[in-house]
């Protein structure tokens, strides 16, 4: 069901991770992703996986809930695995007709699958533990040097947070429109790819119209509440580093050190 897509949605809980400064979490996620590409062997993956498991545990977000987010990208995952599995040249370990699996391919497919899974879990953990507003505040603060280059940092950040707020609303709307068109005899399940693509028109047009209508309404509501861009705005929840954030920086540094060391095994 379309509503099961949980990627990018905030999960309210009271944990150390929820309380961390969003800048720390953003940087941490970035560091984690980069470290995944530094990993050279099984030990490194094991360490990265264990570290993530520990952080997930600390976040108090149910593991099953996080894994559900993977469902949305399972196709991408399968595609990558197959791509690496069948198209890597090297020492063959299995051959049947035109199918050829090599030792290198096996390793590559495995490492890509692990990398992608950890990457998605890691970054979705960030969105689970950080409210969109914190996320945008964090991004805005981290990217603020770019303002000097006339990059509209505040606007981009605001845009992102609004998009995240409207994802569940638009998903629900899609579900409703689909049902309404089904009630008029629309069929989304049978036929070839072209027929199916055509069947999407009665969903997409109302969905776009609704999105535009909502955008217009929201813009008006924001103006009515005196929104006029980033200049002169104060913050209800200004970002301050705390002791726990220092702890997080140190943990991060240790993690990177361990990953780099693991390359030597």
């Amino acid at each position: 069901m379309i509503r099961d897509i949980t990627i990018g949605q905030y999960y309210p809980a009271d944990s150390v991770l929820h309380r961390l400064d969003p800048r720390v979490k953003l940087t941490g996620t970035l560091v984690y992703i980069v470290s995944l590409f530094l990993v050279k062997n099984l030990w490194g993956y094991l360490i990265a996986a264990l570290a993530l498991a520990a952080v997930i545990r600390a976040s108090k977000v149910p593991f099953g809930y996080i894994v559900k987010g993977l469902k949305a990208v399972v196709i991408l995952l399968l595609f990558t695995v197959c791509f690496n599995l069948f198209l890597t040249s090297g020492t063959p370990v299995f051959e049947w007709k035109f199918i050829r699996i090599t030792k290198e391919g096996l390793y590559l497919a495995f490492s890509m699958a692990v990398r992608l899974t950890l990457l998605i879990l890691g970054s979705s953990l960030m969105t689970f533990t950080t409210t969109p507003n914190e996320l945008t505040d964090g991004m805005e603060s981290l990217l603020s040097p770019l303002k000097k280059l006339h990059v509209p940092v505040h606007e981009v950040a605001m845009m992102m947070s609004i998009a995240l707020r409207f994802i569940p609303i638009l998903l629900e709307e899609t579900d409703k429109i689909m049902k309404a068109q089904q009630a008029r005899g629309a069929d989304f399940e049978s036929g070839g790819i072209i027929k199916r693509a055509k069947a999407m028109i009665p969903i997409l047009i109302p969905l776009f119209i609704s999105a535009f209508r909502r955008a217009g309404d929201l813009a008006m509501a924001m103006e009515a509440r005196c929104y006029r861009g980033g200049a002169g705005r104060t913050k209800m929840k200004p970002l301050h580093y705390h002791g726990r954030d220092a702890g997080a920086w140190i943990t991060m540094a240790m993690f990177v050190a361990v990953i780099v060391v693991s390359r030597r095994f």
Binding site: A183, I201, P206
Partner: peptide
């Protein structure tokens, strides 16, 4: 069994 949803005008396309 014809079903007219709430705000059905939002499904016009």
């Amino acid at each position: 069994v014809g079903l007219v949803f709430q705000y059905p005008e939002h499904q016009l396309f």
